[in-house]
């Protein structure tokens, strides 16, 4: 049941309440006082929201309509930046790369997180608090540190990879090659965020009322049947939320490749992900306006995909 359908239903029920100011003039005063009080309560939020979200957004849109050149200065160019972006191979390469990353890494990560949450929740695991903390711990490691750590481990000269390859006698693991670098990044991101998603799933599992399990047990359901019939349906909301967070995270992919770039500069280009592209354009290339354009397009893309996922999830719900 989505908000949209609920609104439609309200409309269909045919209960329009058109304001008829002439008739209700007498009762207007108290009504507006109530309204004012309401505004008073939400104003602090609205101010913060406007400053933190709307202002930067509006400013970005404003910036994206200009072009500031080293020669020629600043001028209004309308939607030219957008037209340029739509035919910019570098931008779309980056966008496709994060799209591919999303399609592969997110399901893998969420599946691992789901299995971990179900295992910890099953009550059949010894030392479940230990596992819960251990799986969550990587999330507490600052992202930059995590990437540097993995960056060293991936190194063939001094890292774990080098030792493993020495041990098996040939180059089995080659994370620092064109074919594997994206997988290597996916591995880091998965390691970082499995615990976070596991915790979302686990807390959702803890809210399932005990009666459901009792009922299931009475009906003779085994553990796997309980998982399928009770736990997974109860997790639907959490899975949708985790998926949307992960989509946003994937489209914002920046830290991991950008730090690995210092170790393998030729493997990861300056336009490897759209965020890296925007960053390099604005901070090194002084093309703030075009960077704003790219950020806005990516923002819209992210919103659209997140919305489609949410819409699909709610339709299946109905």
């Amino acid at each position: 049941m989505s908000a949209v359908t609920a609104d439609q239903r309200a409309g269909a029920a045919g209960t329009p309440v058109p304001a008829s100011p002439t008739k209700k003039r007498g009762r207007r005063a108290p009504a507006s006082r109530v309204h004012l009080a309401g505004w008073g309560f939400v104003t602090p939020f609205l101010v913060a929201f406007a400053l933190a979200f709307l202002a930067p957004l509006a400013y970005s849109v404003y910036l994206s309509l200009f072009r500031n050149q080293l020669i020629g200065g600043n001028q209004f160019v309308g939607i030219q930046n957008y037209l340029a972006a739509f035919s910019d191979g570098k931008f779309w390469d980056g966008a496709l790369r994060v799209g591919l990353f999303l399609a592969v890494q997110v399901p893998v990560m969420l599946a691992i997180a789901l299995v971990a949450a179900l295992a910890i929740d099953s009550g059949r695991l010894h030392g479940k608090s230990f596992f819960r903390i251990a799986i969550f711990l990587p999330y507490a490691v600052p992202g930059v540190v995590a990437v540097l750590m993995w960056g060293f481990m991936y190194s063939d000269r001094m890292g774990l990879t080098g030792h493993l390859n020495d041990w098996v006698g040939f180059a089995l693991f080659t994370p620092y090659t064109k074919q594997w670098i994206l997988v290597a990044i996916g591995n880091i991101v998965t390691w970082e965020f499995v615990g976070y998603n596991m915790l979302i799933f686990y807390s959702a599992l803890r809210t399932i009322p005990g009666e459901l399990y009792e009922a299931a047990a009475l009906d003779g359901a085994g553990q796997f049947r309980i998982v399928r019939a009770v736990k997974l349906p109860a997790l639907r909301g959490a899975i949708v939320i985790a998926t949307i967070f992960s989509i946003i995270g994937s489209f914002q992919l920046f830290n991991e490749p950008n730090i690995l770039k210092t170790i393998v500069p030729t493997l990861i280009s300056t336009s490897y992900t759209p965020n890296m592209y925007a960053y390099n354009l604005s901070f090194v290339g002084q093309q703030v306006n075009y960077a704003a354009t790219i950020a806005i397009i990516m923002g819209v893309l992210t919103a659209v995909i997140a919305y489609v996922v949410q819409l699909r999830a709610s339709r299946e719900n109905d």
């Binding site: 979200f53 965020n275 704003a292 990516m298 819209v300 997140a306 919305y307 949410q310 709610s314």
Partner: peptide, 18 residues
């Protein structure tokens, strides 16, 4: 909540970079 998330997603992607 989801719709807000989608909107906020757009805002943060754009805002973070800029």
């Amino acid at each position: 909540v989801h719709r807000t998330i989608a909107a906020v997603a757009a805002a943060t992607v754009v805002g973070a970079t800029l």
